[in-house]
């Protein structure tokens, strides 16, 4: 089973996770920029984070045979902090980078005027840079948030078929689908979606334009949820091709809209004697 996790925050994960993900079949990930848990206080903090998503993290992923791309943006929560919002001026020079496959996560958190402004500006940036957009939907007041999101997408220069609406569930999938957007589902241990509900949603709405992600981060989450959904689909009687469409071909098609997806894992120049993540060759048993 080949798996593309289209939304996972690997910066917050360990090399054990990379190893387990590879063993589970994960060969590609997209890491959206997001809130770090601790509020940032300046654009400089974003810059270091973006640099890491374009430098160190793909290197780490490559050590484990996983292709790593990212989406960059000012996230919804910090769009409300005037200390952070100037990062919007820096984004254009990042959005031209080879490894950036979308603008994201953008969207709503508390549905404030500042979030309206940041979302509209970044949908425009996506259109200007030939990139699709990854749009987070809010945890609180979700359906209202989805409707406001879709309104802004309709008013934007970015066509809905270049927009992935994420963190959908049973109450929001229909309207997002009718709008013509791509449909993202985050599968979590306790919150958001779970494997069985994901299977039921797929049975009802079909696999077209559906992406399943673990959205694993620094909170309680599971980077193997994509595989677990694949297993649940198989158990429910879905065939190999169906699973491949949802877990591989759909994310490839969506992020491929950027024209920047490279799924061959670039090998580092030198690995002959261990490397900087593996911290040297292990002690050999006699």
């Amino acid at each position: 089973m080949r798996i593309f996790d289209p939304h996972i925050h690997m910066t917050s994960r360990t090399t054990d996770d990379y190893e387990a993900m590879y063993a589970a079949g994960v060969r590609a990930v997209v890491e959206p920029s997001f809130w770090l848990g601790q509020p940032r206080t300046s654009p400089a903090s974003f810059i270091d984070y973006f640099d890491s998503l374009l430098g160190w993290e793909p290197f780490r992923a490559a050590q484990y045979g996983i292709a790593h791309h990212c989406t960059l943006a000012l996230n919804p929560k910090e769009a409300n902090d005037p200390r952070c919002s100037p990062v919007l001026d820096v984004l254009p020079r990042y959005l031209v980078k080879d490894n950036v496959v979308a603008v994201g996560e953008i969207g709503y958190d508390s549905m404030t005027p500042a979030e309206d402004t940041a979302l509209a500006a970044q949908l425009q940036l996506a259109a200007d840079h030939g990139l699709p957009a990854l749009v987070h939907t809010p945890h609180r007041d979700k359906l209202a948030g989805l409707r406001r999101t879709l309104d802004l997408v309709r008013e934007s220069a970015l066509p809905p078929e270049r927009v992935l609406i994420d963190h959908l569930n049973e109450t929001t999938v229909r309207e997002a689908k009718d709008a013509g957007c791509w449909l993202g589902f985050s599968v979590y241990p306790d919150t958001k979606m779970d494997e069985e509900r994901m299977v039921a949603v797929l049975e009802q709405y079909g696999p077209e334009k559906v992406l399943v992600n673990s959205a694993a981060d620094w909170g309680r989450s599971d980077p193997l949820k994509t595989r677990k959904v694949g297993d649940a689909l198989v158990k429910a009687g879905f065939g190999e091709d169906y699973v491949d469409q949802v877990l591989w071909r759909n994310p490839v098609a969506f992020y491929g809209l950027s024209g920047r997806l490279t799924l061959d894992v670039p090998q580092p120049d030198a690995t002959h004697e261990g490397n900087s993540i593996l911290r040297g060759t292990p002690k050999t048993e006699a």
């Binding site: 001026d89 820096v90 254009p92 020079r93 031209v96 980078k97 080879d98 024209g259 920047r260 490279t262 061959d264 670039p266």
Partner: peptide, 22 residues
Amino acid sequence: GPLSLWEVRFAEAGRRCGPEYA
């Protein structure tokens, strides 16, 4: 602006010519 034109070309070299030639 954020970048001069040749710097944009420098950034997009991989996807224009192929990552192996970047």
